[in-house]
Write a protein that binds this DNA or RNA. Sequence first.
DNA 1: CTCGCTGCAAACGTTTTGCAACCCC
DNA 2: GGGGTTGCAAAACGTTTGCAGCGAG
Lengths: 137, 137
Amino acid sequence: MRDLLTRAGLRATQQRMLILGGLLALRDHPTAEQVHRQVAAKAPTLSLGTVYKALDSFVVAGLVKRVAVADGAARRYDADCSPHHHLFCTATQEILDYRDPQLDQLIQEFLAARGFENFQPHSFSLHIIGEKIIRSA
Amino acid sequence: MRDLLTRAGLRATQQRMLILGGLLALRDHPTAEQVHRQVAAKAPTLSLGTVYKALDSFVVAGLVKRVAVADGAARRYDADCSPHHHLFCTATQEILDYRDPQLDQLIQEFLAARGFENFQPHSFSLHIIGEKIIRSA
DNA sequence: CTCGCTGCAAACGTTTTGCAACCCC
DNA sequence: GGGGTTGCAAAACGTTTGCAGCGAG
């Protein structure tokens, strides 16, 4: 735990080691609140605010990722219900549409061929993270 | 506008027509707040609460979709930074990991071959929406 | 005429902030 | 010892809810 943190350039405090350990222990994709509960047993005084701050620095350091979910607060809507994918620009925070029937078909065929043991997919969407290119010239 | 609403089985009120029109006019993927601002010029008394309720019913009716984003409130974290995809269960709200190097390669090759005009991708993640199958037998 | 929708405002849950005390480096 | 981190509490933020009055069907 200590190594993971120091290697990421973060100060290895008691709290951060517990929080990172708690996050790793939770195999689901927990919220800050769930991580806090997980850790509360070992460190009753560790505050929820600290969990938020720690998770934030983990994300910045690249130790941890945020999972994109469609529920929760700060929702965004899309009036276009035809199948399409999204390009997320890390620079401008823009979300651009990307439509590509060939890609749809490719993925669909792959998933159909592969099959899942205990999951019945009915749709999918590819999130492509990157940066918009500003062409000069 | 009226047709779209009635065909979706919704009551075509003044406010809903304006809200749906505003959402369609915004080509980005706006938040409820942004839709409200867009509509405010035409209908200053239209309240933000109404926008929320209208957008909700649009989503239920299938007229509009929610876009999954990693920022905003109700965040979820993932300590696993290795490339993997997510299965979203509509029944249990669970988020299951799905790891498939072959799929990764397939998509990566496709994107590389296709290329983008003004976007430099650096990672991607497939969101597969469906339902967990409870096997009885 | 009825039932669903609107507007308002208050409530809610989650995340962020400010600041003094603390402790890792 | 110094500067990043913690804990606490307050504030901010986006969203939801309750309810009286309104209006589409």
